[in-house]
Structure formats: structure tokens, C-alpha cells
Computed example of a mutant assay.
Amino acid sequence: MSAAALALAGVGITMNGWFARSLGSSDVAGWLFLAVGVPADCVALVMPSRAAGLWQARHSGAALVGWGLWAMTFVFAVTAGIGFASLNIADVTMSRASRVTPAVAAAQTALSDAMAARDRECKGGVGKFCREREADVNERRQALDAAVHSVEQTADPQTEAAIRVVAWVSREVVQPTGNDFAMLRFVLLALLPQVGGILLMVGRRV
């Protein structure tokens, strides 16, 4: 258990240190944020065991202070973890959603051709054929929107798969939304790397 606790703590310190440094508007500010984030994570790691030891030794005042310090650093670490997870997931999702697939490229080409045909036909005034070309442009634009939306839906396959699995296991009784799973993922990604201190405390008491 101690190895798992240290591994989680190492991941949490690395994540939060990276995110803290990314908040700086300059190199100096980034390193200062890093200097705050890493020690705070270290306090969140070691303080539960220390506070529990003080409580067992009947130093209740010092133990309460220790738990208070742990609570502050734990909240700080979790918020940094949320920032790290949300930033990286958003970057990857946006990158995937903006892909130009063959279907999107074909829809864009078809729309450009339809717009060019409309412009040529409507140059001399609005008539029957001009209106037909305008309707064709609208149809091609809708096809492009549908192609882009299809790519956006596959930008986060984990979420879509999780929704289908939960619905299948519950026989459609539970039907979570994409936002439900996204929030659960954020909570777990932010929380799990920060529980190393609790695991160390539990491991030493077993």
C-alpha cells in the first residue's frame, strides 16, 4: 500500500507542479507558482500520518492544527488537479473535434462549388435558377454541418462508450449524459492522485 501511495503522490505532485507552473505569466512567476504547488502537495502527503500520530499521543491541539493544514493543502491540490485534467482533456477534445476528415473535406468542396454556381447564376438578377442554386447552397451547408457534428461526436469516444455501457448494464434505466460522465472523470482524475497521504496513514495503522 505504501508503494501505491507514493506512486499516486508522485503523479499528483508532477501534475500539480506542471499546472502551477503553467499559470505564471512569466518564467519567474511560473517557478514561484511551482514553488508553492509542490510543497503544498508534500504537506498533503505527509500530514495525515503526522496528525494521526499526534492524536494517538494525545496531542489533540497539534493534531487538529495538522488536520486543518492538511485540509487546506488537500483542497489546493484537488483544485490544481481539476485544472490539469480539464486543460489537457479540453485541448485533446478540441484537437480531435477540429479534424478535417475526408467527409468534411468533401462537404466543404461541395459547398464551395455550390456557392460558386449560385454566384454565377445570380449575377444577372434573382430568378428561378438563382433560387434553385441558393437552395442547393443551403442543402450543401447543412451537409457540411452534419459532417462536422459527426466528427465532434467522436472527439471523446470514452464518454460515448461509457454512456452506452451504463445504459446497457442498467437496461436503459440509467441514462447518463455526456456531462455526467465528464464530471465523474474530472473528479476521479483530480482526487485519486491526492489520496496518497490517506493511504500512507491507513497503511501504517494496519
Rank of each mutant, 00 (worst) to 15 (best):
residue 33 F to W: 15
residue 34 L to F: 15
residue 34 L to Q: 08
residue 35 A to F: 14
residue 35 A to D: 07
residue 35 A to R: 14
residue 36 V to K: 06
residue 36 V to D: 10
residue 37 G to C: 05
residue 37 G to H: 05
residue 38 V to D: 01
residue 38 V to P: 01
residue 39 P to L: 00
residue 39 P to T: 00
residue 39 P to S: 00
residue 40 A to T: 13
residue 40 A to S: 15
residue 40 A to L: 14
residue 42 C to L: 15
residue 43 V to E: 03
residue 43 V to D: 04
residue 43 V to N: 07
residue 43 V to F: 11
residue 44 A to Y: 04
residue 44 A to W: 05
residue 44 A to T: 02
residue 44 A to M: 04
residue 45 L to T: 05
residue 45 L to D: 08
residue 45 L to W: 05
residue 45 L to S: 06
residue 45 L to M: 07
residue 46 V to H: 06
residue 46 V to C: 10
residue 47 M to E: 12
residue 47 M to Q: 13
residue 48 P to D: 07
residue 48 P to G: 09
residue 49 S to Y: 11
residue 50 R to A: 04
residue 50 R to W: 14
residue 50 R to D: 00
residue 50 R to H: 03
residue 50 R to C: 00
residue 51 A to E: 06
residue 51 A to Y: 05
residue 52 A to M: 13
residue 53 G to W: 02
residue 53 G to N: 13
residue 53 G to L: 10
residue 54 L to Y: 08
residue 54 L to W: 15
residue 54 L to I: 07
residue 55 W to H: 05
residue 55 W to I: 00
residue 55 W to F: 08
residue 55 W to K: 08
residue 55 W to D: 05
residue 56 Q to W: 09
residue 56 Q to F: 07
residue 57 A to Q: 09
residue 60 S to G: 08
residue 61 G to L: 11
residue 63 A to Y: 02
residue 63 A to D: 00
residue 63 A to N: 01
residue 64 L to D: 02
residue 64 L to W: 14
residue 65 V to L: 11
residue 65 V to R: 03
residue 65 V to Q: 02
residue 65 V to C: 04
residue 65 V to Y: 01
residue 66 G to K: 08
residue 66 G to P: 08
residue 66 G to S: 04
residue 67 W to V: 12
residue 67 W to H: 04
residue 67 W to S: 03
residue 69 L to R: 03
residue 69 L to T: 10
residue 71 A to F: 04
residue 71 A to S: 09
residue 71 A to M: 08
residue 71 A to P: 00
residue 72 M to T: 01
residue 72 M to A: 11
residue 72 M to K: 01
residue 73 T to Q: 03
residue 73 T to P: 09
residue 73 T to H: 04
residue 73 T to R: 03
residue 75 V to P: 06
residue 77 A to H: 12
residue 77 A to V: 02
residue 78 V to M: 15
residue 78 V to Q: 13
residue 78 V to H: 14
residue 79 T to K: 10
residue 79 T to W: 10
residue 79 T to A: 07
residue 80 A to F: 07
residue 80 A to C: 06
residue 81 G to W: 14
residue 81 G to K: 15
residue 82 I to A: 06
residue 82 I to F: 10
residue 82 I to V: 14
residue 82 I to L: 11
residue 82 I to H: 03
residue 82 I to K: 01
residue 83 G to H: 05
residue 83 G to C: 09
residue 84 F to Q: 13
residue 84 F to Y: 15
residue 85 A to K: 05
residue 86 S to M: 12
residue 87 L to I: 01
residue 88 N to S: 01
residue 88 N to G: 02
residue 89 I to R: 15
residue 90 A to V: 02
residue 90 A to R: 12
residue 90 A to W: 02
residue 90 A to K: 12
residue 91 D to R: 12
residue 91 D to Y: 07
residue 91 D to P: 00
residue 91 D to K: 11
residue 92 V to T: 14
residue 92 V to Y: 10
residue 92 V to I: 14
residue 93 T to A: 15
residue 93 T to C: 06
residue 94 M to I: 08
residue 94 M to S: 10
residue 94 M to K: 12
residue 95 S to E: 13
residue 96 R to C: 07
residue 97 A to L: 03
residue 98 S to R: 09
residue 98 S to N: 10
residue 98 S to V: 00
residue 99 R to Y: 05
residue 99 R to I: 03
residue 100 V to W: 02
residue 100 V to F: 09
residue 100 V to S: 10
